[in-house]
């Protein structure tokens, strides 16, 4: 089992969608919202995802396919 902390950024057209609920329903991962700021036009959530590494990767790929931007919580780890 692995735990990943990721920052999900939601575009306006996904604000009303229960994306995090659906991740928990469709994938074998435990979702834990640690911080969030969501308003009527945009929003971000820092999410802990716990599960098998492959299953977490699948859930992230699904969220991205819906239009969510997913980043490491520390920002980019690639540097110049």
């Amino acid at each position: 089992m692995a735990v990943q902390r990721l920052r999900f950024t939601f575009p306006t057209d996904l604000i009303k969608e229960p994306v995090i609920y659906l991740i928990g329903q469709q994938f074998e991962v435990i979702t834990n919202i640690r911080m969030a700021d969501v308003d009527e036009s945009t929003g971000w959530v820092i999410l802990e995802l716990e599960g098998e590494t492959d299953e977490i990767a699948r859930s992230v790929a699904w969220a991205e396919s819906r239009g969510v931007r997913v980043d490491p919580i520390t920002g980019d780890v690639i540097e110049g």
Partner: peptide, 19 residues
């Protein structure tokens, strides 16, 4: 590439200098 590197940094017992 960025996310792969974040994952490696979280799972390997290495000193990732900027992580």
């Amino acid at each position: 590439v960025n996310r792969l590197c974040a994952e490696l940094a979280g799972t390997r017992n290495w000193a990732f200098v900027n992580v």
